[in-house]
């Protein structure tokens, strides 16, 4: 694991969870149910549900192991999908611009910035309408584990042309792989993920999570041309996907890009090689998550 990978693995987000006041027993002040957490960017929100419910369950009107209601997070009335890594959700939903981050959030050393989310419960019908994948709260860890392994199978298929490499993992390997995420063990994680990722992949599993002007998540086909120098950089991909936003690799020829590429809370240089970008910035599910941020007037 190199320095970049190690730093990214340690990346975290401060999150404050507030329970929907309508779900609280009468007389319980909502302030008492606040849960403050520092969560790894490379992890899933759903994994902290048992901890939140353990702390707040006694204040709730309904049984949290109920099969009827599904816990879900929202940020300013927008559902926060549990099946994406925390880092990409934070970057996109808050419209993170790394260049503005320090000025905006860290005005003094005594301040910390946190992401305020609300935890609510909804019926399966409401879940479907909001695009939330239903799961039972008492089996949230199993739900996300199953989802995560299929994400890896899909990533493996894109990288290798089939999913044989991960399908040949023993149950023990799969368990170790999953535990490496739960226990935040980067060495174990890299050891196992390197068995899936080929040295010279032909295609890359990439997700582009756009927030503005409307939320749009896409999985473009990204073929790396190993035979010549075409289509190898981040700019090549961006120019193809967003030709109106990205005009030049460098803003020095009179025409300017209006957006920048963000991954793991960091602005990515457009001249970076796609393969290098993928290998260093990929998430714990084998996909590389990208968000876009626009240059504002203050930029």
């Amino acid at each position: 694991m190199n320095v970049i990978q190690n730093l990214l693995w340690q990346g975290s987000v401060n999150v404050q969870i507030i329970i929907d006041s309508e779900l609280l027993l009468p007389g319980v002040p909502w302030q008492e149910t606040i849960v403050n957490l520092r969560l790894p960017r490379n992890s899933y929100l759903i994994l902290c549900i048992p901890l939140i419910l353990k702390q707040t369950g006694k204040f709730l009107k309904l049984q949290f192991d109920s099969n009827t209601y599904i816990p879900w997070f929202e940020f300013e009335n927008v559902p926060v999908y549990w099946n994406y890594p925390i880092g990409i959700l934070f970057d996109t939903l808050t419209g993170l611009d790394p260049a503005q981050r320090d000025a905006k959030y860290f005005k003094s050393e005594d301040m910390i910035y946190y992401w305020k989310l609300q935890l609510g419960f909804c019926s399966i019908t409401d879940c479907n309408q909001n695009g939330i994948i239903p799961f039972q709260s008492h089996e949230s860890n199993q739900a996300i584990k199953k989802y995560w392994i299929h994400q890896w199978k899909q990533a493996c298929f894109i990288l290798n042309g089939n999913s044989k490499k991960i399908m040949s993992f023993s149950n023990n390997d799969i368990e170790l792989f999953w535990q490496s995420i739960l226990e935040r063990d980067p060495v174990k994680f890299m050891d196992l993920s390197n068995k899936i990722i080929p040295k010279r992949p032909h295609r890359l599993p990439i997700v582009i999570y756009q927030i503005l002007p409307t939320i749009c998540i896409s999985n473009p086909v990204v073929i790396i041309d190993n035979t010549n120098r075409n289509f190898q950089t981040v700019f090549d991909l961006m120019k193809r996907e967003f030709p109106n936003y990205f005009l030049n690799v460098n803003n020095d020829s009179g025409t300017y890009n209006i957006a920048k590429v963000i991954s793991n809370g960091i602005e990515i240089p457009l001249e970076m090689k796609l393969l290098e970008f993928y290998l260093n910035f990929k998430s714990m599910d084998g996909f590389l998550y990208i968000s876009l941020s626009f240059f504002t007037q203050s930029n």
Binding site: E76, V78, G95, I211, L212, P213, C216
Partner: peptide, 8 residues
């Protein structure tokens, strides 16, 4: 098409 959070 889902709208973004208000602040964003």
């Amino acid at each position: 098409l889902q709208d973004p959070p208000l602040a964003t």
